[in-house]
């Protein structure tokens, strides 16, 4: 309460002021204010006035270290780049055993495979295989997921250039780029995946209709 009153509490200004007065007597404990306010139908878990001021402000370096997500428009992509050829070499060494030669035939997810005219058999064919090329809506997700979770036995071990190279190779295997391609923060978001516009938001709403 030494840091001012949050906007969402303005409607309770009168109550907050009252609480402050009582709070000072009782040592300004947020829990005391909270109990008083619960008698006035306020949210008992809401801040009494201002903020609890618990915890600390992370340093910019701490935020950067954990802020690893990549947006579909490329926001978050690091500097660096990689080529299809570099990616193929990395793939054969670190990915092939799980995902198969050229992204097919391994015991884990099949990664490669566009369908003729980018057809969509998936609602009617339970056996149709989902791949990057025929199902994933955004190319940036390849970079994001590979960097955060792959390879499975050494997650987080790939350098950014290596992730770009693997992304380039997977895009090549799915016929999105040529064999000479180099992928970086500028080029990756420009690759449009054929399934992108097939993704719709949940249209189930409860009620009697089965959707």
């Amino acid at each position: 309460m030494t840091r001012g009153i949050a906007p969402q509490r303005l409607q309770s200004l009168t109550i907050s002021v009252l609480s402050c007065v009582v709070g000072m007597v009782l040592g300004c404990a947020p829990a005391t204010n909270q109990n008083l306010e619960s008698n006035n139908n306020a949210d008992p878990t809401a801040q009494p006035a201002g903020h609890f001021a618990i915890g600390r402000t992370p340093t910019p370096r701490e935020i950067t270290a954990w802020n690893i997500d990549i947006m579909p428009d490329g926001e978050g992509l690091p500097t660096g780049s990689g080529t299809v050829a570099e990616g193929r070499e990395l793939y054969l060494a670190q990915c092939k055993n799980c995902h198969g030669l050229e992204g097919r035939g391994g015991p884990f997810d099949r990664l490669a495979g566009r369908l003729p005219e980018d057809a969509f058999p998936f609602d009617q064919d339970p056996l149709a295989k989902h791949t990057i090329g025929n199902y994933w809506p955004f190319s940036t997700t390849i970079f994001d997921y590979t960097r955060r979770a792959m390879p499975m036995d050494r997650p987080g071990s790939l350098e950014d250039n290596e992730v770009y190279a693997l992304t380039a190779y997977l895009l090549f295997l799915n016929d999105f780029v040529g064999e000479e391609a180099r992928i970086d923060r500028e080029t990756l978001p420009t690759i449009v995946m054929p399934s992108r516009d097939r993704f719709i938001r949940d249209d189930r709403r409860g009620g009697p209709e089965i959707r």
């Binding site: 609602d123 990057i132 994933w136 997700t141 997921y145 979770a149 097939r198 993704f199 938001r201 949940d202």
Partner: peptide
């Protein structure tokens, strides 16, 4: 939304009409 792997290539449902239902939370 961030469009992570878990909410695009997984945890989405192909449905009639050529659509993929996503963010089907409930």
């Amino acid at each position: 939304p961030f469009m992570t792997r878990e909410e695009t290539s997984k945890y989405s449902e192909p449905i009639k009409g050529g659509h993929i239902r996503s963010f089907s939370f409930t």
